[in-house]
Amino acid sequence: MTIGQITVSDVSKRFRLERNRPSSLKEALLRTGRRNIDDFWVLRNVDFEIEPGSFFGLIGHNGSGKSTLLRLIANIHRPTSGQITTEGRMSALLELGSGFHPDLTGRENVYLNGAMLGLSRRHMNDAMDKIIDFSGIGDFIDEPVKIYSSGMYVRLGFAVSVNVDPEILLVDEVIAVGDEAFQHRCMDHMNLLREKGCTIVLVSHNAALMGDLCDTIAWLDHGRVLELGEPAPVLEKYLDHMRGGGTTLTTRD
């Protein structure tokens, strides 16, 4: 397998939802009656390959499973069936403050993030100034991140992510929280990473943006891939579908 490749083979993901799930041993032992378990399939038989160095987009209605798919690629969850393989150093920006420990300062979190990516302390020392500079959060770097604003979280997260030379970058719409100037900087930097050969997977509801950036787009609907391919035709079908009222969010069955 080459660096930067992502293979998603026949992946399904089920979440178990249990009403009145006991959270203590006492409750579990004293419980009477049957367990009340609902199975909910968030993804079904998702199967595709992302080529090294390509820019891959995921679109779909709210709750279609985009974020879940990114989490599976990031190895946060394990697929219920199927397999995902990734090759190369992966950095993920999945939600506000992902990868940050609220009690640690920004600087400590940068080191922790480096360690999670397998980078040495020395490497992080070298990257530190660049990261602080890019994030533009200044002296706040030595404050605990729990006092950061949403935008500051994202700024620091993105700054770390792009300055650690990722070979795979997963982005879940977080950049939308930054201000205009920062969003521009992010775009520039994503383009730079892409030129360096980094594989990028982006989730966004912004069809125009996706059309500009992506080489390939997958449209997810209720956990299944409806369309996959060149941005223009996929987006056209997707937008047609959404204009026609879109998909109603079905309740869990």
């Binding site: 190895n75 946060i76 939600e95 990868g99 940050f100 420990h101 609220p102 999670m116």
Partner: peptide, 9 residues
């Protein structure tokens, strides 16, 4: 555990 819900390590 909260951290692990957002990032793999």
């Amino acid at each position: 555990s909260d951290l692990r819900k957002k990032v793999y390590f």
